[in-house]
């Protein structure tokens, strides 16, 4: 599904290398977690894959289901099936949440040559999905993320994910700023979307989230590379001992 090969990335503005040869392959139906100390390049990886400006790929490739992601505009990557749940979802005053969602859903359908969703069908689906995420009608009407609490913003990300039905979901520290109940709600939303045709890349600092979203593979990232991969136990090891042992071991 997603195949990242020897990815090297530096900042556009300064000569600072952030990623130093990331290799990663996520198959359909799998959940991969990426953990790692601050500044290891986890968020950069998510931004580069989704096409945010400010980065230069100096080497390597990223392919999603045959699409050369790095050659595509952000909107084309989305239409190809990539979704990034933002660590800090952006507030957009003046754009209603429903308008935003409908525009996004139909833009993707159009890009894929599919028929646009009618207003009625769209509303029916969005209401049903919002309900399971405990997002009320009022929140749907409000401007995108404006005045939302941290938990509401993250639930709104998951709602978008559900509506857009991507093939590959990247969750960038979705657990940050969430209390235990909110985390459970978000995790349930993610788990409901687990499917053999869909891959997940879950970036997190804490093992806690992985209690709820059980990963198949855990990767440890440091200094812009994946330094160790293993099963769910690897996350527990990090939780107990920190990164020092692992980093010493691979150094």
């Amino acid at each position: 599904m997603l195949k990242i090969n020897n990815l090297h990335v530096k900042l556009e503005e300064e000569n600072k290398q952030i990623l130093n040869g990331v290799d990663l392959e996520v198959a359909g139906g799998e959940v991969h977690a990426i953990m790692g100390p601050n500044g290891s390049g986890k968020s950069t990886l998510s931004y580069v894959l989704s096409g945010r400006g400010g980065y230069v790929v100096t080497e390597g490739s990223a392919v999603l289901d045959g699409h050369d992601l790095l050659a595509l505009e952000p909107e084309e990557r989305a239409a190809a099936g990539l979704f990034l749940a933002f660590q800090y979802p952006v507030e957009i005053p003046g754009v209603g949440n429903l308008t935003f969602l409908r525009t996004a859903v139909n833009a993707q359908r159009k890009a894929r040559g599919e028929e646009e969703l009618s207003a009625t069908d769209f509303l029916k689906e969005v209401r049903a999905r919002a309900k399971t995420l405990k997002i009320d009608a009022e929140m749907l009407k409000r401007p995108v993320n404006v005045g939302f609490s941290g938990g509401e913003k993250k639930r709104n990300e998951i709602l978008q994910m559900a509506m857009l039905a991507p093939k590959m979901c990247i969750l960038d520290e979705t657990d940050s700023g969430l209390d235990v109940d909110a985390m459970k709600l978000v995790a349930d939303g993610v788990n409901a979307l687990r499917d053999k045709g869909r891959g997940f890349l879950v970036i997190t600092h804490y093992q806690r989230l992985l209690d709820h979203i059980k990963p198949d593979v855990v990767h440890i990232m440091a200094a812009g590379r994946i330094v160790k991969s293993g099963g769910p136990d690897l996350a527990l090891e990090v939780e107990h001992n920190g990164y020092a042992d692992i980093l010493a071991e691979v150094a």
């Binding site: 989704s50 096409g51 945010r52 400006g53 505009e73 952000p74 909107e75 990557r77 989305a78 239409a79 979704f83 990034l84 933002f86 979802p89 952006v90 507030e91 957009i92 935003f100 525009t103 996004a104 859903v105 833009a107 993707q108 890009a111 978008q160 857009l164």
Partner: peptide, 13 residues
């Protein structure tokens, strides 16, 4: 940031 957010959801620039 808002522009990228919209584009990342598939809305053309």
């Amino acid at each position: 940031d808002a522009l990228f957010y919209l584009r990342s959801r598939g809305v053309p620039e």
